[in-house]
Write a protein that binds this DNA or RNA. Structure first.
Length: 839
RNA sequence: GGGGCGGUGGCGAAAUGGCAGACGCAGCAGACUUAAAAUCUGUCGGGGGAAGCCCCGUGUGGGUUCGAAUCCCACCCGCCCUACCA
């Protein structure tokens, strides 16, 4: 029998065995503590790539580790199966997206099985099947009833390549490009469906403090939500007291410093207030602003342009008139679309004032300056004062502000806010950067939006009992990328569910991020109530099972979803809670973001760079265990890093050595092992268990593998001695295999069987590390003189400080280095080192 | 412009206030072999020395400390996010 390590034989053998035994099937009856481990579901592009392996195999190891520690672990899998590539394939090859998608899924299932994960295939969910998307539609309908879904005509981002609108979160980068295809987006005015995610802005922000997520993601979400507290108040127009506009500011304490006001070009008041002399120029500016693309506006960020309207507004705090300008640096979409210009205390206003020679009175000075009575020196003639002024908030004091002079931050905010509330129709207001989630997509391959437009009844939601609105199976795809639904008469022209008259169906479909916003719930009981009529009182999953498994305990996935999927699914959960579907607030309690696996050249893998690593090739050559362990060994999981085709051989050698260690007979050793040999072996075993356990807990897979390599090297040495066959030896081998099991499930199962242990290693208990056995008896201590190592001492590990100090000073070498100098100080760190400081 | 992460041998990296470079890759030398592959053994940050050893070394410059890759300040470089949000 050829007894070399041959993964091609053992891996498929055990994969079949596990599946036949339903080893990883979810256990709903267990009394053990449940652990819902979720890794972001893949898009069925057709091939599992290295990135999937990098995300999934450590996740699987983490889940398996938890299982061996007594948890009732569930690791489900499914496919995010709606989306553009399927539609593009349909246009190109004439194959229906449904067929293309399911063929890809079939192929990827095979690849995923070869990874040797503990995925529970019996609860697989595919988002493009009617049994799944009936619930995606049901959620839309539910949110519509709750007032969380609404339709609005507004300027929106449109990707000309994908031929659809996008959510604000899906427009990336400086050039505002489409997150999927990279094309810069255009702005279009369209009637689109939106979800009122802004209704949860506060909660989405505040509950970030409650979840164990990476700070990085939390920061990104905080910035994205962008809450700012301020005051909105009214300004009237000089000579036209019936006209007014409102401005929003976070710095009411600077109102006395207002030297102009600005309206956004789209502001409704613009036409009314422009004076006759200025009217033409204002109209030209507004027209130019309209024509300017988002890109142009970006390109000239910093450079300010604007036009004077000829009108003046009254600053409510001092009754002074200030010129009203139009400028495109003020955005209609944020706040009120109008601002007060305080150039001395706002960088943007300053740039604008500079451009047009507007005065910049200083109204806030540093506390020290005020107390020293030097506030007068801080005026706009002093060039140094202005740059120092605009960042002033904390530690600033109001000056040149009438009755408020001397008010410090934050009292200055409160006092002026109160005054503006009483005297300028003001109110405290919180503004957010986050916008409502635009969910309409002008594409066919997504969940239909269950809405019917009736000339008589208006917008009518599809009745719950009529869900789901099914996608047609005979859609004709157009090379232009236009949605076939628009041209599908049977789909589009329907009777109104209310009046029975002729009506039209909404032909836009929903953003596929809706599908993934609730997939962790869909896994609980996939395709729940498929084929049955639905009602508003339904649950989208079996509530008894949901009680057991929800919410997700550990989530893993890439950082790229920080302000998309991870925000949307949090919103969904809060809306679901308010609909009475769940009784918790957050969908995923812990999150870990793995890094990105790069090509050999250290660059992102891409076909155009030609640096794509095909995992199948390496799995064929080395086996899944080697590929898994190698990906974990590369470096810290959160860091990612380049693929190195040579380094993988080191991991292969490691597994081959472990194989030989256990399978090959040892040279018979005469004699009996010494107590010291046994103690050394057990110490190595328990030290490794403690280290490896800690590393699995913290997802530090790279040092976990390194520790196992070190331990196996120790055992290979020990195999040459008489310890082989002792209880300590058996303990070591058993522990080694169980520690390898989560990361390298096949080889450990095979070797476990070969040493005669009961199937399966994956249902065994995790080895317990004993700190007493792991403790060193004798340690080497470095002796430093003035911080430089001059000697090393072997000393009992439990020696006290005095003993260590005496031993160090007794050393001849140490005395030589001290020379005649006096010892000023001796620092002893037990078990580590001594530092002798001489004078 | 703002925010975040990072910079350690030829390479991937350990070490997060206590002996820098664990573990692995590559390299070098050797064993086995007719030879090669595979495997095994040794070596492997730089400089000096016959050697015991000594000096230098974690992007750069300062600082705190008995002691700094680790903490603080300033700067340089790389990557990611964000961008006129009042």
């Amino acid at each position: 029998m050829n007894d070399r390590y041959d993964p091609s034989i053992i891996e498929s053998k055990w994969q079949q065995q596990w599946e036949a035994d339903r080893l990883y099937q979810r256990d709903d009856a267990s009394t053990a503590q449940k652990w819902y481990f979720l890794t972001m579901l893949p898009y069925p592009s057709g091939d599992l790539h290295t990135g999937h392996w990098y995300a999934m195999s450590p996740s699987d190891a983490g889940a398996r580790y938890k299982r061996m520690n007594g948890y009732n672990v569930w690791l489900p899998i499914g496919f995010d199966a709606f989306g553009l590539p399927a539609e593009n394939a349909a246009i190109k090859h004439g194959v229906h997206p449904h067929k293309w998608t399911l063929a890809n899924i079939e192929r990827m299932r095979g690849q995923l099985r070869k990874m040797g994960t503990m995925f529970d295939w019996e609860h697989e969910a595919i988002s493009c099947l009617p049994g799944y998307y009936q619930w995606t539609e049901w959620f839309f309908r539910k949110f519509y009833d709750m007032g969380l879904a609404y339709r609005e005509e507004a300027p929106v981002d449109f990707c000309p390549t994908c031929n659809t609108t996008l959510a604000r979160e899906q427009v990336w980068g400086e050039d505002r490009h489409c997150e999927r295809c990279g094309t810069p987006v255009e702005i279009r005015n369209l009637a689109q469906w939106k979800f009122r995610i802004t209704a949860y802005a506060d909660e989405l922000l505040d509950r970030l403090d409650e979840i164990d997520w990476p700070e990085r993601v939390k920061t990104m979400q905080r910035n994205w939500i962008g809450r700012s507290e301020g005051v909105e108040f009214e300004m009237t127009i000089l000579g036209q007291e019936d006209l007014s506009f409102r401005v929003f500011t976070t710095r009411p304490d600077t109102t006395f410093g207002m030297s102009f006001a600005v309206l956004a070009p789209e502001h409704a008041l613009v036409e009314q207030i422009a004076t006759d002399e200025q009217e033409e120029a204002v109209r030209a500016y507004v027209d130019a602003a309209k024509r300017k693309s988002e890109l142009d506006r970006q390109a000239e960020a910093g450079e300010k342009t604007g036009i004077f309207t000829g009108a003046y507004a009254i600053n409510p705090v001092n009754g002074q008139p200030v010129p009203i300008w139009i400028a495109d640096y003020v955005l209609m979409g944020y706040g009120t679309g109008a601002i007060m210009g305080v150039p001395a205390h706002d960088e943007r206003d300053f740039a604008f004032a500079r451009q047009y020679g507007i005065p910049t009175p200083i109204v806030i000075v540093p506390d020290e300056v005020y107390r020293a009575g030097e506030a007068a020196a801080w005026n706009e003639q002093a060039g140094w004062a202005l740059p120092a002024a605009y960042a002033l908030k904390e530690g600033g004091v109001m000056v040149n502000s009438g009755p408020f002079d001397g008010a410090p931050w934050p009292h200055s905010f409160d006092a002026t806010a109160t005054w503006l509330t009483a005297h300028a129709a003001g109110e405290r207001k919180t503004n957010y950067r986050i916008r409502d989630w635009l969910i309409s997509r002008q594409r066919m391959w997504g969940s239909p939006i269950p809405i019917i437009y009736c000339p008589t009844c208006g917008t009518v939601p599809v009745p719950y009992a009529d869900l789901p609105v099914l996608l047609p199976e005979d859609a004709a795809f157009r090379p232009t990328g236009e949605s076939p639904l628009k041209y599908h008469e049977a789909f589009r022209y329907v009777k109104c569910p209310t009046c029975g008259g002729d009506a039209e169906r909404e032909t836009d479909t929903m953003d596929t991020f809706l599908c993934s916003s609730w997939y962790q719930y869909a896994y609980v009981s996939p395709y729940w109530k498929a084929g049955e009529p639905l009602s508003p009182d339904d649950m989208p999953w079996d509530p008894a099972l949901g009680q057991i498994w929800l919410p997700v305990d550990q989530y893993t996935g890439g950082i790229e979803h920080a302000t998309m999927h991870l925000l949307y699914t949090r919103f969904f959960t809060k809306a679901m809670r308010d609909a009475g579907l769940v009784d918790f607030d957050e969908p995923m309690l812990r999150l870990f973001n793995q890094g990105m696996i790069l090509g050999e050249d250290g660059e992102k893998m891409s076909k155009s760079r030609g640096n794509v690593v095909n995992p199948d090739e390496y799995v064929g050559k080395y086996g899944a265990d080697v590929v898994r362990a190698f990906l974990m060994f590369i470096g810290p999981w959160e860091m990612g890093g380049p693929w190195n085709p040579r380094a993988i051989e080191g991991v292969q050698r490691f597994l081959q050595r472990v194989w030989a260690l256990i399978v090959e007979a040892s040279e018979p050793q005469g004699g009996i092992p010494t107590a010291g040999q046994i103690a050394d072996l057990r110490r190595a075993t328990h030290q490794t268990i403690l280290k490896v356990t800690e590393d699995y807990e913290n997802f530090k897979f790279n040092t976990m593998i390194a520790a196992l390599m070190g331990f196996s090297n120790t055992l290979i040495e020990a195999k040459k001695t008489a310890v082989v066959g002792t209880a300590a030896w058996d303990e070591a081998i058993s522990a080694l295999l169980r520690m390898m099991a989560p990361a390298m499930p096949h080889i450990s199962e095979e070797l476990w069987a070969r040493i005669g242990q009961p199937y399966s290693i994956h249902t065994q208990a995790w080895p317990a590390g004993d700190p007493a056995l792991a403790r060193e008896e004798v340690v080497e201590i470095a002796v430093q003189i003035n911080g430089k190592v001059r000697d090393r001492l072997e000393i009992a590990a439990d020696a006290d400080q005095a003993t260590i100090e005496a031993a160090a000073l007794a050393s001849e070498r140490v005395q030589q280095w001290i020379g005649g100098k006096s010892v000023r100080k001796v620092i002893v760190v037990p078990g580590r080192m001594v530092n002798i400081v001489t004078g």
